[in-house]
C-alpha cells in the first residue's frame, strides 16, 4: 500500500462516516460543521485527481461562502430541535431505496468496464497547468455559458434581496405614488356649522 492508497481510504472513510452522521443526527448546527469537514476532505480528493483549481474553488466558495451562509441562517432563526415522530417507516423506506440504488450503480460501474472504454493517458507533463487549461476552455469554447452563469448569479442576488425585503418604512422620504393618489376628500373634511 503506497501513501496515495492510504490517503484515499482515509479521506473517503471520513467523508462517508460524516455524511452518515449528518443524515442521522438531526441537528442542524452539527450538520453544517460536518458539511465543512466533508467539503475539506472532498477538496483533498479533488487534489488527488489533479483538479487543483476546483479544489481551491470548493474550499473558497463552499466553505467560505455557502456554509457560512447556512450557519448564519441557522443561528439567525434559532430553530427548536425536535425529535422526529413516526420516523421508523421513513427510515426503512429510505434505507431500502438507497441500498437498491447503490446496488444498481455498483452493477453499472463493474459490468460496463469504464476503464477499458476510456483512454487512460493521464497527463503527467510537468508544464501542464490545470488553471490555465480551464481558463482557456472557459473563455473560448464556453464563453456563452460563462456569461449565462454570471447572469444567473445576478438573478440570485436580486431574488435573495427581493424575497426578504420587508414593506416597513424606515425613512421619512416622500412616496410620489401616494402623493398622486391623494385627493381633496382625503385631506379636507368640511363640517357644517348649523348653529349659526
Amino acid at each position: 500500500m503506497d501513501i496515495i492508497t492510504i490517503l484515499f481510504y482515509l479521506v473517503t472513510s471520513v467523508i462517508i462516516l460524516s455524511s452518515m452522521s449528518l443524515v442521522i443526527l438531526n441537528n442542524t448546527v452539527h450538520a453544517a460543521l460536518l458539511l465543512v469537514l466533508i467539503f475539506f476532505n472532498s477538496a483533498i480528493l479533488w487534489l488527488m485527481l489533479k483538479a487543483e483549481f476546483l479544489a481551491i474553488v470548493l474550499v473558497l466558495v463552499y466553505v467560505g461562502a455557502v456554509l457560512v451562509l447556512f450557519l448564519f441562517v441557522i443561528m439567525l432563526l434559532d430553530i427548536p430541535i425536535k425529535k422526529n415522530i413516526s420516523q421508523k417507516l421513513y427510515l426503512l423506506f429510505s434505507v431500502t431505496i438507497s441500498i437498491i440504488m447503490f446496488a444498481e450503480l455498483y452493477m453499472v460501474i463493474f459490468y460496463h468496464d469504464f476503464v477499458a472504454s476510456v483512454p487512460t493517458s493521464a497527463n503527467s507533463a510537468l508544464e501542464f497547468n490545470n488553471t490555465y487549461e480551464i481558463g482557456l476552455s472557459l473563455f473560448t469554447n464556453y464563453i456563452f455559458s460563462f456569461e449565462i452563469t454570471a447572469f444567473i448569479l445576478l438573478v440570485a442576488i436580486i431574488a435573495a434581496i427581493a424575497i426578504n425585503m420587508t414593506g416597513r418604512q424606515r425613512s421619512l422620504r416622500q412616496d410620489p405614488g401616494k402623493q398622486i393618489l391623494e385627493n381633496k376628500k382625503s385631506r379636507l373634511k368640511i363640517i357644517k356649522d348649523e348653529d349659526l
Binding site: I16, S19, M20, L22, V23, I24, N26, T28, A31, F70, V73, I74, I79, K82, N84, Q87, Y90, L91, F93, S94, V95, I97, S98, I99, M101, F102, L105
Partner: peptide, 17 residues
Amino acid sequence: FCISVAGIFINRKNILL
C-alpha cells in the same frame, strides 16, 4: 449519492437538512 438520497427521505421534517 445514495447516503444523501436516504438523507432526503429521513429528514423530511427539517428543510435546512
